[in-house]
């Protein structure tokens, strides 16, 4: 074996090890969360965690239902705001906009993804929360505020993936439909949407994953009360906020219960990712 060949093999081995270390980090994290979080769930019974209404860790009440429901409401609200806006943007960019407008709009949208989430939270606190408090009532820190801000935060995800979905539709579909006397809007509604459906579904699911996982902005504007919100104007605490708010001082079973929160979050996000991969794999076929 020459020196060059030996070098080549060494480099390949090194790169392989780096690649595998990324995978093994994922495995280590997963194992760690599960080993810290699952024992306490089984000690008190998973039912008490999943369906318990009270969260008083000092009194061994580890009910996570308010947080699960909270995450669900905030995420659903974010989708209600972000998906229509995102799809509208993707349609404009792929169907109507000239190349020049596209060249301006697309980088701007991508820039949205680069804004730190604490900045989103800050804007939420100084602009959106007072707006809600003064015009709609309630404390302002609410499901609604979190939904609005998260809705904007998921836009880059929703837009870029649904743009891909629309661009994957063969241009001949569009021409064929228009040549049959369809207007551009009829073509979008009756041809482009059905053809891009699985990609749009993937965009929504990934946006959902982004919304569920977001922590900082939500802590700042959601109010964080550990109770099921009665209205969109009520404060809410999500699974992610629950962990971030209390991890700093938690110990013992309290700390383990926060890991259990992490386990639930982890399972939800994994399920969403698998669902997204599955729908986009189905599109490729």
């Amino acid at each position: 074996m020459t020196r060059l060949e030996r070098n080549d093999r060494l480099i390949r081995l090194g790169l392989l090890m780096i690649a595998f270390s990324a995978v093994s980090i994922l495995i280590v994290i997963t194992l760690f969360i599960f080993s810290e979080g699952t024992p306490i769930m089984f000690k008190y019974g998973p039912g008490r965690f999943l369906f318990g209404l009270d969260w008083y860790p000092s009194e061994k009440a580890f009910g996570l239902l308010p947080m699960i429901v909270g995450s669900f409401f905030v995420t659903a609200g974010a989708l209600l705001v972000g998906v229509p806006m995102g799809l509208a943007c993707a349609i404009v960019l792929t169907q109507f906009a000239s190349k020049r407008v596209g060249r301006i709009l697309k980088p701007v949208i991508e820039l949205l993804a680069g804004i730190p989430s604490v900045v989103y939270g800050f804007i939420g606190i100084v602009v959106i929360v007072p707006l809600i408090r003064e015009n709609l009532g309630g404390p302002g820190l609410s499901v609604l505020a979190a939904s609005l801000v998260l809705g904007v935060m998921i836009l880059p995800t929703v837009i870029s993936i649904s743009i891909d979905a629309f661009q994957a539709v063969p241009p001949t579909y569009r021409e064929g439909s228009i040549a049959l006397g369809a207007t551009v809007w009829q073509t979008i509604r009756m041809v482009m949407f059905p053809a891009a459906r699985s990609g749009i579904v993937a965009a929504v699911i990934l946006g959902m994953g982004r919304a569920i996982g977001e922590t900082m902005a939500v802590i700042m504007i959601a109010g964080n009360a550990a109770a099921i919100p009665g209205s969109p104007l009520a404060p809410v605490r999500t699974l992610t906020s629950n962990i971030a708010l209390e991890m700093g001082y938690a110990s013992g079973e309290h700390r383990e219960a926060l890991f259990a929160t992490g386990v639930i979050l982890f399972v939800i996000i994994m399920a969403l990712n698998i669902l997204a991969n599955w729908t986009s794999a189905r599109r490729k076929r």
């Binding site: 063969p170 001949t172 579909y173 040549a179 049959l180 006397g181 369809a182």
Partner: peptide, 30 residues
């Protein structure tokens, strides 16, 4: 209206991703 009066058939057949029936009546339905 012009495109309805001047039907066009392309080099590559472009049925829409729908049923045979839906393809035939697509333009008529619109």
């Amino acid at each position: 209206e012009l495109r309805r009066k001047m039907g066009m058939v392309f080099a590559i057949p472009v049925p829409l991703p729908r049923s045979i029936f839906e393809n035939v009546v697509f333009g008529a339905r619109l």
